[in-house]
């Protein structure tokens, strides 16, 4: 049942697995041993776990988050830049989420008011 968390890339660059397979909530390179396909046009490949990414910022976010203990200062800075860029986008995304929630709430309340109050529905 348990997934082997060891990575398939060169042992020099890869960080030593520090967390045992059985520890709950282990954060050892999740997804690094998942099968990939169609990655011939990959923009970047993680040098720690070999996972390909379609965009450089996806790669930077991955390295800084998953390989936080192993990455270099340059990679750390790239991660922080990508994170900052995403934060702006996330704010506008959350605005839309709040608007969608308000819309959904209104529709549901109105539907109940009409269904219970008028007998039309």
């Amino acid at each position: 049942m348990s997934r082997n968390a060891s990575s398939t890339t060169d042992a020099d660059a890869a960080p030593e697995p520090t967390v045992s397979d059985d520890a709950p909530g282990s954060i050892q390179a999740p997804g690094s041993d998942l099968a990939t396909c169609g990655d011939d046009d990959a923009a970047a490949t993680c040098r720690y776990c070999g996972r390909p990414f379609a965009t450089p910022d996806a790669h930077d976010l991955h390295v800084g988050d998953v390989h936080a203990d192993a990455c270099t200062t340059a990679e750390r800075e790239a991660y922080e830049r990508a994170l900052e860029a995403e934060e702006d986008e996330l704010f506008y995304f959350h605005l839309r989420v709040v608007a969608a929630l308000a819309g959904l709430y209104t529709v549901v309340v109105l539907a109940y008011m009409i269904a219970l109050g008028s007998g039309i529905l």
């Binding site: 049942m1 348990s2 997934r3 059985d22 520890a23 709950p24 282990s26 999740p30």
Partner: peptide
């Protein structure tokens, strides 16, 4: 698990990344 019986929040063991059935 390895340390015997553990009490977790309901459903939280499903989010363990190392327990995927391959």
């Amino acid at each position: 698990d390895a340390d015997g019986l553990g009490l977790r929040l309901p459903g939280s063991a499903l989010a363990d990344v190392n327990a995927t059935d391959d």
